[in-house]
């Protein structure tokens, strides 16, 4: 594998076939190594897969990533090494693939302010944080106000997005797809929802510091 400067990468990848082919193979190989490392060392949810299975995944993803890099060559600004930029594209593609696979059955149906928020695991306090009776009453009151704030301050769309992302830990990418929007727009929608909720609660005297203290006691 040849070490190339950024300029050499760009020249080779857009060069004549006899120059382009080895550059493409070098790029694919580099991406495959990085993806394989990530899948095998950094993903605790993939430990049930064999090395061969992970290798195949990495190979397929690297192939797709190489094509995507080629499609986006014009957007390389040269702020980083070319291979880092290409790895960024590969990482995003790999993680997107994993998210889609994990959340393939996820639906926003039922996530409405009038419906029941899905039960979550570990929804009871650990013994050492169990509230006193007075504290429990205060907490219940604050919880009621927060639930009301969710209904009153947010639109249905904001409520669905916030419930899925903040309460159920669903990736933005998945929620954006289900809402028929993109991640960028969803991030802005969530940003507005969080601010509205915060302002609504603060207007009722519920500062974040107060809530944090109350529920950490």
């Amino acid at each position: 594998m040849i070490d190339r400067t950024n300029e050499q990468w760009l020249a080779d990848l857009t060069g004549k076939p006899d120059v382009q082919a080895p550059a493409l193979e070098d790029l694919r190989y580099r991406l495959q190594r990085g993806i394989f490392y990530y899948l095998s060392r950094e993903r605790s949810d993939l430990t049930h897969l064999s090395g061969q299975e992970l290798g195949q995944m990495a190979e397929d993803l690297a192939q797709d990533a190489t094509l995507r890099v080629m499609d986006n060559l014009d957007s390389f600004r040269g702020d980083s090494r070319f291979t880092t930029w290409a790895t960024k594209i590969a990482v995003r593609l790999a993680i997107s693939d994993l998210r889609r696979s994990r959340y393939k059955d996820f639906s926003l149906d039922g996530l409405t302010a009038e419906g029941e928020v899905l039960p979550s695991a570990g929804d009871t306090f650990p013994t050492h944080t169990a509230p006193t009776p007075e504290n429990a009453t205060e907490r219940a009151d604050v919880m009621m106000k927060i639930e009301r704030a969710l209904r009153e301050a947010l639109t249905e769309r904001q409520y669905q997005a916030l419930s899925a992302v903040a309460l159920q830990d669903v990736p933005l990418e998945i929620v954006a797809e289900r809402l028929g929007t993109n991640r960028n727009a969803l991030y802005k929608l969530l940003h507005d929802a969080r601010r509205k909720l915060r302002q609504h609660l603060e207007a009722q005297g519920l500062s974040t510091d107060y809530m944090l203290k109350l529920f950490e006691e």
């Binding site: 409405t112 302010a113 009038e114 419906g115 029941e116 928020v117 039960p119 979550s120 695991a121 570990g122 929804d123 009871t124 306090f125 907490r139 919880m143 927060i146 639930e147 969710l150 209904r151 916030l162 903040a166 309460l167 830990d169 969080r194 909720l197 915060r198 609660l201 974040t208 809530m211 944090l212 529920f215």
Partner: peptide
């Protein structure tokens, strides 16, 4: 709609950040 306390923590975290 009924928030569990675990979810409430997540919500507060999300507002705080």
């Amino acid at each position: 709609m009924s928030l569990h306390e675990g979810e409430l923590h997540k919500l507060i975290d999300c507002i705080v950040t």
